[in-house]
Amino acid sequence: MTAAYTLYAKPGFAATTIERLCSEARISNRAFYECFGGREELLQALHERCVEESLAVVSKAVQDAPNTLDGRIRAGIRAYIEFTTADWRRARIMHVEVRRSGDVLMMSRQRAIDSFAGLVEEAWADFPQAPGVNRRLVALGVIGGLQELLIEWLLADRPPELDELVGVAVHLFLRALTP
């Protein structure tokens, strides 16, 4: 898994063969197949681990935040961005390779988005909303915006500073979540 964590992040999932994974990990192909059905299954396991760790960090930050919408949103976004970007490989697997893998991670990606949308809805639940607004759809929209900000951080020639990412994401979330 350690070898895949690095190789799937760069050169990327599509460019990483099982032979290269096994060589990097110093294991035989047979040993690999005793653990995983293929490189897709390994990518899914890595992605799900990254998501679970991120969810735990964000949940804790939101729970410990001041009991205001602003406090919860700021704490959750800062925790997510700081945790995700603390290791570029994690950010790359969660926001670039998950998309490049095509159908391989479609269900895993949707489960992750669903879990994060649930966190947003939960953080927002005690606060007013504009009439007729579908909380679920708003949560999905702001999560998509946050994902695009992180992709920009990963791929831009001049990546934005983390504080700038946090500020923009907080702005988007609060604009979307307040009546």
Rank of each mutant, 00 (worst) to 15 (best):
E164H: 07
D126Q: 14
A125P: 04
V138E: 01
V138T: 10
E122T: 10
E121V: 04
Q147W: 10
S115L: 04
R99P: 04
V120D: 02
G132M: 05
A130C: 13
E121G: 06
H95I: 03
L162C: 01
W124R: 06
P160L: 10
L150P: 04
R136V: 01
L119I: 09
D126H: 14
L105Q: 10
A117Q: 14
G118A: 05
E121D: 12
R99I: 13
I143C: 02
L155H: 07
V120L: 07
E164V: 05
A117G: 12
H95V: 04
A123P: 10
N134L: 10
A125H: 13
P131H: 12
A130S: 15
L154Y: 02
P159T: 07
A139S: 15
V96K: 08
L146G: 06
A117P: 05
L155M: 14
V133W: 11
V96I: 15
G144T: 15
I151Y: 02
D103V: 14
L105P: 10
L137D: 13
V96Q: 12
V104E: 04
V104M: 07
V96A: 12
R158E: 08
A130L: 15
E161I: 05
V104Q: 02
G102M: 06
G145N: 09
L150F: 04
L140W: 03
S101L: 03
D114C: 10
L155Q: 14
L162T: 08
P128T: 05
G144P: 12
L146R: 11
A156E: 09
I93N: 05
L119F: 06
A112N: 00
G118H: 00
D163G: 07
L149G: 01
I143V: 13
A156Q: 02
E164K: 03
W124L: 01
G145C: 09
Q147V: 11
Q147N: 12
G132N: 07
G132Q: 07
R136F: 01
E152L: 12
G132T: 04
M94R: 05
G145H: 06
L154V: 04
G145R: 06
L137P: 03
G102V: 08
V138I: 08
D157M: 03
R158P: 00
V138D: 01
V138Y: 00
V96H: 11
D157Q: 06
V98K: 05
P131E: 14
E148C: 12
E148S: 14
S101C: 08
L149K: 06
L119K: 05
R158D: 07
V142Y: 00
A123V: 06
R136N: 09
V133L: 11
I151D: 03
A117V: 13
G141I: 03
I113Y: 08
S108I: 01
R158Y: 10
S115R: 06
M94T: 07
G145A: 11
F127D: 01
A156M: 08
L155E: 13
D114M: 05
P159D: 03
V96E: 13
D103I: 14
R100T: 11
L105F: 12
M107I: 13
P160D: 02
M94S: 11
R111S: 03
L105T: 15
L149S: 07
V98L: 04
I113C: 08
A139Y: 07
I113N: 13
L162K: 06
W124T: 02
E148V: 12
